[in-house]
Design a protein around this nucleic acid. Structure first.
Lengths: 248, 248
DNA sequence: AACCAATTTTTGGTCAACCAATTTTTGGGT
DNA sequence: ACCCAAAAATTGGTTGACCAAAAATTGGTT
């Protein structure tokens, strides 16, 4: 036995969590325990870092994260304040923030599916002429790749992003954007887009575009549903789903 | 003239943007100019901070942000790498990330509307018995506040969050969560929820719950649409909307 | 020439010190 | 007692320095 590493091999795995997330947990506890009430000012960053036994960087990171979700508001030379939301909702939201970005693919694909249905619908209602041009361009890029028998996952995603842009709703656009990378990763990893499916997509994209051009919201939604049906079906088997009813 | 401040009053206002966002812009330029190709390793943080003339903290903040959206991946003692996505989509996504979180309320409310319709539907399909209990509890909290003639914006939001939890889809839950604070702010600022609307909500919440208990997806969706109709209508006047078709 | 172990360098991770603006305290003047 | 300006303390903002781990280099052995 030249080394003793074998014994400790599976020790280090614990404590993988980001320090910032642990700080968020601690802050949550401060809120739930009543030590930190809505509207209160947080202790100074220095105090927090000392009390939590961690560098100030992590405290700031945690605060930034919480601020991103609207739970904290920090004013430059004044302090950081808790949103005036009420303890119950604060508690609930902090809990969810911690487990955010640990989504399973099934949930991601499904969320995207519903999001995109609405995206297509609203795009059809509100698209400008320039939107049409951009979507056409994205379709062309996709088709070129397919013609050359190349992978075109990103070009497909870009098409969807352009459609989302046409909705003129920045919130919806942002959401589809947030989902995009995971979707791409999923598609590539699971090879859910077989060659024949990609060929079919050429026509499906065109159908969606045609409906958007015609400002036919219902047709656009239906075409999008058809386009996404396969990937939804393949990825949400763990949900008790019934995809045959398409009227959302 | 005791002071000369008057002259400089409107000088400082420029340069309001977060330094991190400017770094993201610069990184975007590196990508578009071809100096940084997909899959490449970024220059070390120190180099970037020097080249951009800014502290390393901001570089790290920008990288963290980009990493959150899946565009970068940083490995502890190795380096930060660009996602292998293709220049066009990278460019498009970075652009959108910069303008994220600057959503107008109209977009927010609308996005939430569609999200919640699906939330209600999926909740009806997948709710557990415990979900029912939690939703009931949220409804009770809301009703108590209303009975006492108190504001109950947060309690209402909590109801919606509980419904979202019942979907068992963490992605959808997260999205509703992200939208929640802005919605609350909007409601409070615009006083869109008049007293009579809040009274109506008591019954509407119950309708939604009943549909969820009955596992009637369509009814749940419809009830949710009715519940959100007013606020949607009030906030999306700048969109050319037709809210009378409820089949999403 | 090829391989491998020891060493050096480079990397992101972490922390502590400094800065400017704000707020609070102080103390002299009225 | 009150007021107001000056100084001290406190705040988040910003920067640079140190750490351990990983990668690259080196140099000797086969």
């Amino acid at each position: 036995m030249d080394t003793v590493t074998g014994i400790f091999d599976n020790i280090k795995a614990i404590q993988i969590d980001n320090p910032a997330d642990k700080i968020i947990s601690q802050l949550k506890q401060l809120v739930t325990s009543g030590q930190l009430k809505p509207g209160d000012r947080l202790p100074p960053e220095r105090v927090l870092s000392e009390r939590f036994g961690v560098g100030r960087s992590y405290v700031r990171e945690a605060i930034m994260k919480l601020e991103f979700y609207g739970l904290l508001k920090t004013s430059p030379q004044s302090g950081t304040y808790v949103a005036g939301y009420g303890i119950k909702i604060l508690d609930s939201m902090i809990s969810d923030i911690i487990k955010i970005n640990k989504n399973d693919f099934g949930a991601l694909i499904e969320a995207r599916y519903y999001m995109e249905l609405n995206s297509a619908k609203l795009a059809a209602e509100r698209r400008s002429d320039n939107d049409i041009l951009e979507i056409k361009s994205a379709i062309n890029d996709y088709n070129e790749k397919i013609d050359k028998d190349l992978e075109a996952v990103e070009e497909d995603m870009l098409f969807h992003i352009k459609v989302a842009k046409a909705t003129k709703n920045s919130a919806i656009e942002s959401m589809i954007l947030i989902l995009a990378p995971d979707i791409i990763r999923y598609k590539i990893e699971t090879d859910v887009c077989k060659r024949d499916l990609e060929k079919m997509a050429v026509q499906q994209h065109q159908d969606i575009l045609d409906a958007i051009i015609a400002r036919d919201a219902k047709a656009a939604q239906k075409a999008m549903a058809a386009h996404l049906a396969k990937i939804l079906e393949a990825s949400t088997k763990h949900f008790l789903n019934n995809t045959d009813d398409l009227e959302y």
